[in-house]
């Protein structure tokens, strides 16, 4: 009879595996999978990756579209008060749950990045195939936001701290906070000022005005109406910080939802249904 120490010793010294297990041989070996089983396990990996990318591309895009989609769909909704606030709060939900699923069960620090990547790719496919090819809206009108910067930081926080609470506090905050600067870098040209009909407008306003949307009148925009010029007029940073604050709680909430979703719970099935498949009730009980 061997002890647990022997198991550890047999699994080759930790110092070695930490740096040399590039191809994952040790992981396969320790997992107990034979080379044949490992091959099928890889097929299973491929299927899981395909499912994850497609279902979360669909589900996250739907989620974002119907919670904060207007801010994402139109360049002239990307204001300083609401856009940096509502977008990350919505965008963090699925990535946080995916983080929990992938980390807790598989120790993969990629959940948030997977979610944000699937979302961005799905969004661009839609913009191209629908907004441009179908109805001919220029890309500039529908240029989306991205959450990759925040998602990457969240995954990095997780791998370094390895703790869901601190990932919420630091990673979740970072997710919300960096949304504004990381997207502003990409969209800054759209805020150049122009004069139109004797009034000031940003290029984004002009794009939304020039290419008419029949069912999106100007007044529908829920955009900045603030009056207080705080922190030397850097109002966006206040929104970013507020978004970070809310994202802390959102992350923890959705982390737990991810844990809940990964329960392998079976409820008792009806004896009648089981009997169709040849399971006698006495056997089943």
């Amino acid at each position: 009879m061997t002890s647990t120490a022997d198991i550890d010793a047999a699994a080759s010294p930790r110092e070695n595996t930490r740096f040399k297990d590039k191809k994952g041989e040790t992981v396969i070996s320790v997992s107990g999978l034979t080379p044949g089983a490992a091959r099928y396990s890889r097929l299973f990996d491929v299927l899981v990756v395909a499912a994850v990318v497609t279902i979360f591309g669909g589900a996250i895009h739907l989620h974002v579209m119907l919670t904060v989609g207007d801010w994402d769909m139109y360049v002239d909704w990307k204001d300083r008060q609401y856009w940096p606030l509502v977008m990350p709060v919505s965008m963090i939900m699925f990535p946080a749950a995916l983080q929990a699923i992938f980390w807790v069960n598989f120790r993969l620090p990629i959940g948030a990045t997977v979610g944000a990547t699937a979302l961005l790719i799905a969004t661009w496919i839609g913009r191209y195939a629908n907004w441009w090819i179908w109805t001919g809206f220029p890309f500039t009108e529908g240029v989306p936001s991205q959450a990759l910067a925040g998602a990457l930081l969240m995954d990095m926080t997780l791998i370094v701290l390895r703790n869901s609470l601190f990932t919420s506090i630091i990673g979740g905050f970072a997710f919300g906070f960096v949304f504004w600067p990381s997207n502003y870098s990409a969209l800054a040209p759209f805020y150049l000022p122009v004069e139109h009909q004797g009034m000031v407008a940003s290029l984004a306003d002009m794009i939304g005005y020039t290419f008419p949307r029949s069912n999106m009148p100007e007044y529908l925009r829920i955009i900045e109406r603030g009056t207080l010029r705080t922190f030397g007029s850097s109002v966006s940073w206040v929104s970013a910080a507020f978004a970070g604050f809310i994202c802390i709680f959102m992350h923890q909430l959705w982390w737990r939802l991810g844990l809940f979703a990964s329960q392998a719970t079976f409820l008792k099935n009806s004896d009648v249904v089981k009997s169709f498949m040849g399971i006698k009730s006495s056997v089943a009980s």
Partner: peptide, 28 residues
Amino acid sequence: TMWLVVYSFCIFWTGSFFADGDGVWHQT
């Protein structure tokens, strides 16, 4: 697992691709 991959694939087309198309149709 393959059933679920196909299911996921269909969710992508519905939740993302055609739902997004619905968004743009409402603008026309």
